[in-house]
Design a protein around this nucleic acid. Structure first.
Length: 882
RNA sequence: GGGCGAUUAGCUCAGUUGGUUAGAGCGCUACGUUGACAUCGUAGAGGUCAGAGAUUCGAGUUCUCUAUCGCCCACCA
């Protein structure tokens, strides 16, 4: 047998087992398996993405769930794929072009698109291979891409369907314009951030009379597009001005003073400049007062020819400075004051959004929202954690139409053709040749592309061949669980639900699990600019994929916010290493046993029964936790069992039976191998590489069927594992004796090497339990012998500890510091005394006796007896000391 | 402005239908290494569960209020 190092070297094993799994084809899902299906769709990362810790956690969770279900015998599909990521990819390619001294516009649309395709071929989807390093057990043969031919066709199909149903329309309104990317973006891609700005008070001269009106604004440059000044109709200060006119400086436009309730008299000067083309509020006011709209910016948010000659082409922020200076010069700037306010920024380019009037395509969402709301309300779809329900409902009930057109070149082109001969537009899954109204053939396709989410929302459908009614669709739709970040609940999750209902009258998944957001030590989100992220590829290479996975899951409870630092990963590594060394121990001691025989349950000793029972309990707990998506609890149970049950007690109690030619070695081997195989199976979804490596070095046990790989071994179910509740309790008693002696050693500063005498005071029943276990107690607590002694005949000058129905004396002779020991016992007596007092109060309370359930009363009584006995013993011992 | 959440050991956090003496990991202290593991073992110290009130036989857990801190949504120049 190969002698393995005491350190687990992940780099030696991870590739080996990945290849083994891939070759075995165990991650492949079948359409006619005859088994129950379990499906997860990966939230497709952008082709531009590199694996970060958020992906790490998200995909580890999915992998644990899918591996767990696979081991339970389900036909599992974890569908991988990537998203073409319109804006992100276009930005990437433009950056690359810039290095060559080229621009998108110089290159032209067709060539630029081609460059994007090439970029994707060459650099895209790196993350896919990174996911494999993490151990992601996707069905990699099914990898999908939102720009694949049939997925693109699905995008066309859904557009046409919605259009024909009147759910897509073209509208002209103010949109969130990103001047850096020169495109409209949806409300959901806008971040509101507080900025430190200024509030400028500007004088607008009145027409036809002396004087001026003072308006307050944060954006003086937009005055060039002002078409009114508004005051509150109830504001007494300005009554006489309503209906009069002012002259906008620089452009000398004469505009009216209107009255509108939107204006808050207490804010600023109580007068607002109205720039309908560049402010959503002003836009609304303009509609109410039939004011004209004047656009003063081009697509880059630079001043257009509305402005005076010398300012044309200036960036909006440069223009602001110029205009302020000019106002100052004309004595029209009354004052400026510091002011904090909320401003919209583009999520992608991070530049300030410029509201812009433009024609865009929209999807009517209200019609789609209804069934999607019902799904969550009636539990067809369950959100984990549930607290997202309210947020979901609120958004869905106030849903706004979705602006789906983007002024980009990379993406699915909008399938709309304008007719040169008539007003109508034509759409089609295939490019139309003629206008649907007039039959004219002079058709021109819309220049814009669709929002990336307009293809992502089809993710539950399009990879399976929708709109064709394929076998895949029948098998894998709807999926079981969606694991994703809550930040895209509206961008993606809600929309998938809506479109699935629209197309198939069915929810796309049953459960939605929102994983935690990963932050740095200070609670800040990981970000490139801050450079505070932890690279999972680095932790994989340093600590291994298993340690990385395990650490993520242990740290991240459902849907919270997890603070992470690099050192956390060492903990996961220690755990993996612990398991590794346990396996080495078994190999070293049991390696010579060729065949493991089954054990007969009646032959098992107490610690064996306890250990098997622990395996049973742990299996139950892990299955139960996973059902509820409490992955961190499941991983904690696994950790607890492997480290503190199997290693600390299981192996330690087994040691005397091992190594030598003991008669019972075959029995104990059978128990250890049985339990170890069970725990490897429990561990497999969490730490698949190391468990697979260990598993192959483990001899077979008759109680476990051995398939070719651990990934398809049956996941332990509690019912299939022997149950020893009572014996397990008994062993806990024995453990308490051992722990008691050890504790005394520390408190009295007695070396573990010093062999001690031990006397137990207890009744015959307890003695009958403890006595047969004395050899373990001797070994684990290093005592010479364990003797029974009667109450009152306890040895002098001894340390004492108490348990349920027993007290244990350890004579230490002159080593005893009487005063110190007395103090310790008195402290302990006080503590126990308080508990006794509390329990006595409780147990004599009429209300308690009348209203508490019987089992609670009984357990309280039992507890009280126990505590009284302990108090009694302590008192006795204090007496002996004095 | 509205909604949601958090506040438990020095640190990071569990605590899932209210019920034994509130847990874990890390850190800290003491002791311990000639064959599983020092990336280890054994034990120890450390908490009035943010504060106030209410419901209850019983509250870390339910309710109300307060304080502090987060997050999401929202058109206030």
């Amino acid at each position: 047998m190969e002698e393995k190092e005491s350190l687990y070297e992940h780099s030696r094993y991870e590739q080996k087992w990945w290849d083994f799994w891939t070759k075995g084809g165990w991650f492949k899902a079948k359409t006619n398996s005859g088994k129950k299906n379990y499906t997860i769709l990966i939230p497709p990362p952008n082709v531009t993405d590199r694996l970060h810790m958020g992906h790490g956690l998200n995909n580890t969770i999915q992998d644990i769930l899918i591996r767990w279900k696979r081991m339970q015998g389900y036909n599992c599909l974890w569908l991988p794929g990537t998203d073409h990521a319109g804006i992100a990819t276009q930005m990437m390619v433009e950056k690359a072009l810039a290095k060559e001294g080229l621009s998108r516009k110089e290159l032209g649309r067709t060539k630029f698109f081609q460059r994007c395709v090439e970029w994707k071929e060459k650099n895209g989807g790196i993350i896919i291979n990174q996911l494999k390093k993490l151990g992601a057990s996707c069905d990699w043969d099914r990898e999908a891409y939102t720009m694949d031919e049939h997925l693109s066709r699905a995008v066309r199909r859904i557009f046409v369907n919605l259009f024909n149903d009147g759910l897509i329309y073209r509208g002209e309104r103010l949109v969130n314009w990103d001047p850096a990317l020169e495109t409209a973006i949806s409300d959901d891609e806008v971040n509101m951030e507080e900025v430190k700005g200024k509030l400028w008070h500007i004088r607008y001269p009145l027409k036809d009379e002396e004087g001026h009106i003072v308006i307050a604004t944060t954006r003086p440059e937009t005055m060039l597009g002002d078409t009114a000044v508004a005051v509150n109709p109830d504001d007494e200060r300005y009554q006489q001005l309503i209906g009069k006119q002012v002259v906008i400086p620089f452009v000398n436009r004469v505009v009216p003073i209107v009255a509108d309730h939107h204006v808050k008299p207490e804010f600023g000067t109580g007068c607002v400049k109205i720039t309908p083309a560049h402010d959503p509020n002003d836009f609304e006011i303009a509609k109410r007062h039939q004011l004209p709209l004047i656009n003063i910016f081009d697509e880059k948010a630079c001043l257009n020819d509305v402005s005076p000659q010398e300012w044309r082409g200036l960036d909006r922020f440069v223009a602001r400075k110029k205009i302020l200076a000019a106002l100052e010069e004309k004595s029209l700037l009354e004052k400026e004051e510091p002011y904090r306010y909320i401003m919209p920024f583009s999520d992608r380019s991070k530049v300030a959004i410029e509201p812009r009037l433009s024609k865009q395509w929209y999807v009517r969402m209200k019609e789609l929202a209804g069934p999607a709301i019902d799904d969550v309300r009636n539990g067809t779809i369950r959100l984990f954690p549930k607290l997202w329900d309210k947020t979901y409902f609120h958004w869905m009930e106030h849903i706004q139409d979705w602006c789906i057109s983007r002024q980009l070149w990379w993406g699915h082109r909008i399938p709309i053709w304008y007719c040169a001969d008539c007003e109508d537009v034509t759409t089609g899954v295939d490019d139309p040749k003629t206008c649907r109204s007039c039959g004219g053939s002079k058709l021109k396709q819309d220049e814009d592309v669709l929002d990336t989410w307009f293809s992502s929302w089809l993710w539950p459908l399009s990879p399976f061949g929708w709109p064709e009614e394929t076998e895949e669709l029948r098998t894998f739709f709807p999926s079981n669980v969606l694991v994703t970040g809550a930040e895209i609940i509206f961008l993606w999750v809600a929309r998938m639900i809506m479109v699935s209902h629209y197309t198939r009258q069915q929810a796309p998944f049953k459960d939605v699990y929102f994983n935690s957001i990963i932050c740095d030590k200070n609670g800040r989100k990981f970000s490139k600019t801050l450079g505070n992220g932890i690279d999972p590829l680095e932790t994989i290479s340093e600590y291994g994929a298993d340690a990385t996975r395990f650490t993520c899951v242990v740290l991240a409870p459902l849907g919270g916010r997890v603070r992470m630092e690099s050192s956390d990963f060492a903990n996961g590594y220690r755990f993996v290493n612990k398991l590794w060394n346990a396996s080495r121990f078994l190999n070293q001691n049991l390696g010579s046993i060729r065949k493991i025989n089954d054990f007969r349950e009646e032959d098992l000793d107490l610690p064996s029964r306890w250990l098997i029972h622990q395996l049973r309990e742990t299996s139950f707990k892990i299955n139960h936790c996973l059902e509820h998506y409490w992955l961190h609890e499941a991983s904690a149970a696994l950790y607890q069992f492997i480290w503190h049950a199997f290693c600390d007690w299981g192996l330690e109690t087994a040691k005397p039976s091992l190594g030598k030619e003991k008669a019972d070695i075959h029995l104990i081997a059978s128990v250890l191998i049985y339990v170890f195989e069970g725990l490897l199976r429990l561990a497999a979804p969490f730490i698949p590489f190391v468990s697979e490596e260990i598993w192959h070095s483990l001899p077979a046990h008759p109680r476990w069927e051995r398939p070719t790989s651990l990934v398809i071994a049956k996941f332990p179910q509690a019912e299939e594992i022997p149950q020893f509740s009572e014996d397990s309790e008994k062993w806990e008693q024995v453990k308490a004796v051992v722990t008691g002696v050890r504790s005394l050693r520390t408190q009295a500063a007695i070396s573990p090497k010093e062999e001690l005498d031990a006397f137990l005071t207890c009744d015959d029943e307890v003695w009958a339990l403890i006595h047969p276990c004395r050899h373990w107690i001797k070994q684990l607590a290093n005592v010479k012998d364990l003797q029974k002694t009667a109450t009152g005949k306890t040895p002098h000058q001894s340390l004492v500890t108490t348990g349920k129905g027993w007290s244990l004396h350890v004579p230490v002779g002159t080593l005893l510091d009487v005063e110190k020991e007395k103090q310790r016992l008195e402290r302990e007596l006080k503590r126990i005394g308080n508990i006794v007092k509390g329990l006595e109060q409780k147990i004599t309370d009429k209300n308690f006796l009348a209203r508490a359930p019987q089992d609670v009363i009984e357990s309280s009584q039992g507890q009280l007896e126990n505590m009284r006995a302990q108090a009694h013993t302590l008192l006795e011992n204090i007496k002996t000391l004095s």
